[in-house]
Structures are given as structure tokens and as C-alpha cells.
């Protein structure tokens, strides 16, 4: 289904897009299995309409919202972002979505809200990968409030001009392009405003391997592999790897968030 009425964005990269077949056929979405091809094969099991989003925690307007009602309030825009996976590959994807900051403002978080916690749907019938206990389900991710309010933070509902394919995290997913891909949680059913730092899935699974911040950083290697360079998905066999940039190249927009922080300690 095509999406009508979206504007373009000043934040878009002017780079060659990763082919549609790879964006939608090469996915890490363990709710549907651990192989990259599993999500495209099995995500049809997910029912995305109707979809409700629960807002709770330190917020003035908690409740269960219908996603369609939320979308009516938002201006959709296309943003071409680089997605950098912690596995040292990257894609360039034309997402469609709306500003997370806008949604947060509408929900009016209280002064106690220091973090935003996101939760993916938990339903092993629709998400058969959840039958295996490789991660603690449901999948949880989180951002510091100022990170969530950053203009780059996007709630995406589509890509390549159409509604989000299920394997890419339909109907609503987060995109935080300066962080490794696993932070950009998919198929969100709940947003909670908290005082404490959320317990995020990968961090809980392996603390020394995946930090809470997970900012893209070529100088902080993963304990088992280097993060200096990345393979560009869709490039030819003999194309050299690309040099990974600090904050995935989005430093001018986000570096201020981490001023004075030791990025090796808070990786």
C-alpha cells in the first residue's frame, strides 16, 4: 500500500539507496527467527491492523491509543538515513515517519520522566521466534529523554513510499540513526516514560557487549570484533568496506548529547 501525503526532509542523505529487495529481505528481527531471511518468510503472521499503542508512566496523558488516531495528528515525512548494524554492515533506507519528539510533546511527560522505554509486541503465535528463549521477550529498548527529543529520532511507519513491510517492524518502529540498529525497536506496542534507565534487551542479554547507549563509534570495538569499518549492503563483491563514522555521521546533530561523557565507558 502506497503512502500519500508525505514531505521530504532536510535530514535526508543524498546517497544511493540500498535496493528494496535487500532492505526488505535481509533483516534482523529475532521475533521471526535468527536467520536474516526468516522475517521476510514469516512476518505475514503478524496482524498490524488494528494496532494500539499504550502510553504509560510519568506522563500527563497515559492511555491506550489507536495507532490510526495518532497518525492523524502527525505530518509524515520521508527521511533517508543510514542504518548501521552492530554486525558491521550498513544500508541506506528511505524511511517514512514522523518526529518522535512531536509525539512525546503531545503526551506531556512529567518532570520525572528521564527516560523513554519502548516495548515490542509479545505474541508467540504471531511472532514464532519468541518461542525460542534466545532473548528475554518482549523486546525492550530505551532512550534518554533528550535523545528521544532529538529531531533525528523518527517513528517510522513506512519505507520506499509504502506502508512498512511487516519484516521491517510494522506498523510502528523507532529509527535512531546514530545508534546501532538494535536500538531502533520494531512493532512497538508500548511507550513508557520512566525515572530509571530502562532494562533493554541486548544489554540485559550481554552487558559487556551491548551498552545502553550503543552509539555508532569506530573507536570502541565490540569485544569480539572491530567496528572501524562496515560492509555496504548491495555493493559489488570487490567494493572495499566503508569507514564507519562516529555517531554514524550524524555528529553535528547529536554530539552535544554526550558532551563530557566517556564514550568508552558509556558505550
Amino acid at each position: 500500500n502506497k503512502i500519500e501525503n508525505y514531505v521530504t526532509s532536510q535530514f535526508s542523505l543524498k546517497e544511493k539507496l540500498t535496493p528494496y529487495e535487500y532492505v526488505t529481505g535481509y533483516n534482523n528481527f529475532y521475533e521471526f527467527g535468527t536467520a536474516k531471511s526468516d522475517p521476510a518468510l514469516r512476518a505475514h503472521l503478524l496482524k498490524t491492523k488494528p494496532w494500539s499503542l499504550t502510553i504509560e508512566g510519568e506522563v500527563a496523558k497515559p492511555g491506550v491509543y489507536n495507532l490510526e488516531d495518532i497518525l492523524k495528528q502527525q505530518q509524515l515525512e520521508e527521511r533517508i538515513y543510514r542504518l548501521r548494524c552492530v554486525e558491521a554492515w550498513s544500508m541506506v533506507v528511505p524511511w517514512i515517519g514522523f518526529s518522535l519528539a512531536e509525539l512525546i510533546r503531545q503526551m506531556e511527560p512529567t518532570s520525572k520522566a528521564k527516560y523513554v522505554e519502548f516495548t515490542t509486541l509479545y505474541d508467540p503465535k504471531q511472532m514464532p521466534g519468541q518461542k525460542s528463549r534466545i532473548l528475554k521477550w518482549p523486546y525492550v529498548e530505551g532512550l534518554r529523554m533528550d535523545e528521544a527529543m532529538n529531531p533525528l529520532s523518527l517513528m517510522a511507519t513506512g519505507l520506499y513510499g509504502e506502508e512498512m513491510p511487516n519484516q521491517n517492524g510494522a506498523p510502528l518502529r523507532l529509527i535512531v540513526p546514530w545508534k546501532y540498529g538494535f536500538k531502533s525497536i520494531k512493532s512497538i506496542v508500548k511507550i513508557k516514560f520512566t525515572e530509571q534507565m530502562p532494562k533493554t534487551s541486548w544489554n540485559e542479554s550481554a552487558k559487556h557487549e551491548y551498552g545502553f547507549y550503543a552509539n555508532v563509534n569506530p573507536d570502541v570495538p565490540h569485544p569480539r570484533w572491530s567496528q572501524r569499518r562496515e560492509r555496504v549492503i548491495g555493493a559489488s563483491l570487490f567494493t572495499p568496506k566503508r569507514d564507519t563514522e562516529l555517531f554514524n555521521g550524524y555528529g553535528e546533530h547529536v554530539a552535544y548529547l554526550y558532551k563530557g561523557m566517556n564514550l568508552r565507558q558509556f558505550f
Binding site: 570495538p221 570484533w225 572501524r228 569499518r229 568496506k241
Partner: peptide, 14 residues
């Protein structure tokens, strides 16, 4: 790229 290898090897136990 030998220079890249020399950077990557010490960071990758595997």
C-alpha cells in the same frame, strides 16, 4: 589492506 588488517586483528579475538 595490510594496515586495515593490523588494526582489525588485535580487536577481533576470533
Amino acid at each position: 589492506r595490510v594496515d586495515h588488517m593490523l588494526e582489525d586483528i588485535p580487536e577481533s579475538p576470533y
